[in-house]
Design a protein around this nucleic acid. Sequence first.
DNA 1: CGGTAAGTTGAATCTAGTCAAGAAACGTGG
DNA 2: CCACGTTTCTTGACTAGATTCAACTTACCG
Lengths: 297, 297
Amino acid sequence: MTAAMSYYDALDFGNADDETPCKREHEGASFSVRELTRLLHIDEPGETWQVRTAFALRRVHEGEALVHAGDKFHSLYVARSGCFKTVYTDLSGSEQVLGFPMCGDLMGADGIDSGHYRSSAISLDTSEVVILPLARMARLVYQSPRLEALIYRILSRELVRVQNMAWTLGTLGAEGRVAAFLLNLSARLGALGYSPCSFNLRMTRQDIGSYLGLKLETVSRALSALNTAGFIQVQQRSIDIIDADALRRVIDPAACDRAGFAPTRESIPKASGVENGGGRARPQVQSGIAWGKLAAA
Amino acid sequence: MTAAMSYYDALDFGNADDETPCKREHEGASFSVRELTRLLHIDEPGETWQVRTAFALRRVHEGEALVHAGDKFHSLYVARSGCFKTVYTDLSGSEQVLGFPMCGDLMGADGIDSGHYRSSAISLDTSEVVILPLARMARLVYQSPRLEALIYRILSRELVRVQNMAWTLGTLGAEGRVAAFLLNLSARLGALGYSPCSFNLRMTRQDIGSYLGLKLETVSRALSALNTAGFIQVQQRSIDIIDADALRRVIDPAACDRAGFAPTRESIPKASGVENGGGRARPQVQSGIAWGKLAAA
DNA sequence: CGGTAAGTTGAATCTAGTCAAGAAACGTGG
DNA sequence: CCACGTTTCTTGACTAGATTCAACTTACCG
């Protein structure tokens, strides 16, 4: 109940001074609704937004937290530049990275319901975000009805993203997860106008592992395996995607079969010559790549 | 772009005949906004909702799909009775259960952004849902501003649910996941007025496994282990929770240490007397329960 | 009362985690 | 500019946990 009250306080339509807590916005900088829609890729060329409001920006330095888990909810944020990690912190200190928001991505939506943010957003870079005070957004809807649909869409989009993540964690093995991670990153960077096949990771192996439900060593091994297989080229944080289709086949062995890629080839002595027989491993979707297998093929 | 257009078609505020596709609603039955808020537990006693609209209901029989993945998005749904499973279907036929919505839970929100549902909702029971055509909801907001906050909240709530799921999949081992699943179910049934310690599962081991990223055999083994340990009592679909705190300790070994529960006791011959030495297993949070360990202690 | 679907259990195998030791990159100060 | 310590990353060996395959038991439904 108290959570519900605090929420309604923040979202009261009457006279909420929704600007108050945003004291760290750096001055001069602001963002129109039009620019916001472009940033979010929810952009209809002929659209008139009928509203002259501008949203404040905020700069966040590397290592700094945009929001802390547990903080009272006030605003949604959309990254405008830089890169973040959102970290869910359990009661007992157990953590997990839930995402790596970048330019155009939403943060803070998990705080709406309870009135408190559920995860922390930590900048991995010097970043800039657009501040969207929800109470103000809610009021603006009455001036620009299309804004309502926009809010629904960005919330739904975030939901789909997390659903996809759950699917990845639930069905893919280690290399599949890493491959999916790289392809996702590649696609997002490509959409932003950067090269989709050559980029630098902003996060550590540990962060990636936490995100993918793996240990950092496993992430490292998976990257090495994909490297040795010739699908990517890794050198510390620098990634080059050589064969994106091959990565897709790592995720989806069915497509792999169709394409004549043969993952069922037990040709590797695997250093410690145990020579195992027939069993297989993961259930629904499986990478089929033993650690050195692709290397030797 | 086409996806975006179809979305805006459905959500156009002017004159969308949002009732058309809901032909299967069974007559007479309808649902007021007031009742809806109570169902969703977003209920402020003194609230006046200023709107006399009624939402249609729809009955879904066991095995029937409320929505299919890929269908054009039209409405959100809130379960009023019964139980569903939401199934994400990958392009290559790989499936995963993303949730088991019950009374008061939202379905269909993953379709808002793209204009097409991303997952199917299949009834595990004879169920009834409240149909919330989004276009109509969007218009109603102008009659009852509080309705706007309600929509944001239910979307955020769903997001938090999936985030939690991702955390479970990413950090817990098999028994931890099963324990978390049972506790979650228990809490939800309790909130609905049913017994939180004695209930029947509506889903198969396979469905549970798909939901938890495990094989059905593993689910079965985990349930057996928790049963043998005396934490629960399982008999096929019938579950009795004997020691909820113990289940919580399975999820959070830290709390387990505090409570003097000793999971690090290698006393089990484990049938095939291999007698392994020292290593440990999962990363951040781990159950620490070998299959027969608790039985022998 | 059979036939089928669902659940349990066992044994062998494989995947990912653990422990441990180095190698490579980075920042800082001499 | 290089030595130095720290952090990050890589790789190896071994182990625990989850999957696979398979047999069997139990429930369910006409």
